[in-house]
Write a protein that binds this DNA or RNA. Sequence first.
DNA 1: CGCACTCTTGAAATCTCTCAAAGACGGTGG
DNA 2: CCACCGTCTTTGAGAGATTTCAAGAGTGCG
Lengths: 253, 253
Amino acid sequence: MPHQPQPQQQQTTATVHDLRARCSACSMHQLCLPMGLNELDMAKLDQIIGRRRKVPRDAHLYRVGDPFTNLYAIRLGHFKTHQINPSGDQQITGFQMAGELLGMDAISTDRHHCNAIALEDSEVCEIPFARLEALFAEMPTLLHHFHRMMSQEITREQSVMLLLGNMRAEQRFAAFLTNLSARYSVRGYSSTSFQLRMTREEIGNYLGLTIESISRLLSKFKKQGWIKVNNRELELLDPATLKAVAQGTQSCA
Amino acid sequence: MPHQPQPQQQQTTATVHDLRARCSACSMHQLCLPMGLNELDMAKLDQIIGRRRKVPRDAHLYRVGDPFTNLYAIRLGHFKTHQINPSGDQQITGFQMAGELLGMDAISTDRHHCNAIALEDSEVCEIPFARLEALFAEMPTLLHHFHRMMSQEITREQSVMLLLGNMRAEQRFAAFLTNLSARYSVRGYSSTSFQLRMTREEIGNYLGLTIESISRLLSKFKKQGWIKVNNRELELLDPATLKAVAQGTQSCA
DNA sequence: CGCACTCTTGAAATCTCTCAAAGACGGTGG
DNA sequence: CCACCGTCTTTGAGAGATTTCAAGAGTGCG
C-alpha cells in the first residue's frame, strides 16, 4: 500500500491576479463549463466568473476543510486531487487538465473534501458557486451542461473503482496511459506523444500500486515495444495493444 | 480479482404501478430529494414525480445503455449498481438504500452507465429528469439540494477509491461495516444490528476482494468478538474497534 | 561538482487469490 | 415431516501477484 506522508512540497499558496477571464476568448470554452452556450449566454457567464488565478507548481489550490465558495475551471496546466485518511495515508483521486472543473465534491458540505495541487505552473478561473447557481435560473442550457459535468465526474470515478477493484497492475497502467492519451487527443494534442506531469509515485498512488511497480511496468511495456520512455517524456508506440491490455483482452508474457 | 460473469439472476423486469407518490407523505422526505423544502415547494415537486414503481428482488431497475429519462428515489428496499467492463468482469459501484438517488451517472450521456438491481423487493419513485430540471428554475432550494446530492455521490465514490487504493482487506471490510452502520443509524434503524442484504460475493466484489476473503474476514472478526454473524444477520458488538480498524488505527493479530 | 531527489532493479516477504472440498441453509416434492 | 437438491458459505493448502526492503543509477539544480 502506497502511503508515504508525502514530504514538504506545497508551501506556497496560489497567487491571485486580478485579470478578468473571458470565456469567449478562452481556448477551452468548447470543453469547459460554457460548452454549447450562445454568445449572449456566454457573456452573462463571463460576468460572474471571478478572477483568473495563477497557481505555481506544487501550490495548493485548496485544502481539505477549506470553506467552499468557488469552483475552478482549469485554463492551463495540470492538477492532482487527493484525499487523506485519518491515519495519514493519501489517495490521489484524480489528475485534472485544462477544461476540467475542480471542487465539485465540496458542494455537499460547503467544505472541500480533498486537496488540489498544481502539478506544474497552472492557471484557473474562479467560479463563485453561489452566483453560478443563481445564474442557472435563467440559463437552462448552462444548468444542463453543469449537470453533465458533475455526472461525468461520477462516471469517471466509477471507472476508477472498476480499475482499482478488478484490474491487475498491468491492466491498470495500460488503462491509465490510454486514458491520458484520449484526453490529450480531445484537447488537440498528440495522443501518442506527451509528457507525464506526475511522478511515478503519484501514478502508483492513483492506481493503487507502489512506485516500484510502476517503474517495473514502464520497463516491461518498453521491453514489449509498446512505449518509449525518457524520464517524463512518453511515446505510445502501440496504442491499440495498450487499449487491448487495458480491456483485459491481451496481456504480456 | 473477483470476476465471475455472475449467473442468471435478473430475468424479471420491474413492474409499474400507477400510484402517484407524495413526498410529503413519505417517511424518507427528510433524507431524500425534497429535504428542506417547505410545504408549497414540496407540493410542486409532488406534481412532477412520476409513478411509484415496485421492483422485485433481482430485477433490474435499469441496465447499461438504457436511455436516461428518470432518476429514481428509493422509497423502500435496497439496490446495487454495477459496471461491466469489456471483458465481462463486473464491479459493484455501490449499495443504495431508502432515501438515496439512483441514476445520476446517466445525465452525462443520456444513457445509463451501470446496471441497477434490487437486492430485495423494493420500491422507487420515478423522477422525470427533464421536468425536474425545468422545476429548478423556480426552486433554488431544490436545485441546491440536488447539487448537494450529486456532490455527495462524488464524495462517496472518492471514499471508495481511498478504500480500494489504500486499504488492506481487514480495513476495507471494517470500513464497509462501519459505513452500513452509519447509514442505518441515520435512517432510524439500529446501528449495531441489521441484516446484510447482499451476498458475500457481492460484498467481496464491491471491496475488491474474493468471497473467500470476506468469509475469512467475517470469521476473524467473529473470533475477535467484534461482531456476531448468523447468515445475513449481523450484530456489531464493538463498533468503536471496528471504526478504529477501518481507520487503520488498530488491526487484529 | 555534488547534493537531493527520483527512478530502476533485484530478492525476499506477504497478502490475497485460486483451487478444492466439505458444511450449512432454504426450498421442493414425495 | 423428511430427504434431496442447488446455492451460498466456510475452511484449508498452495500459488501468485505485488509489496517491502535494499542498493545503486540517473537527473536536475544550485
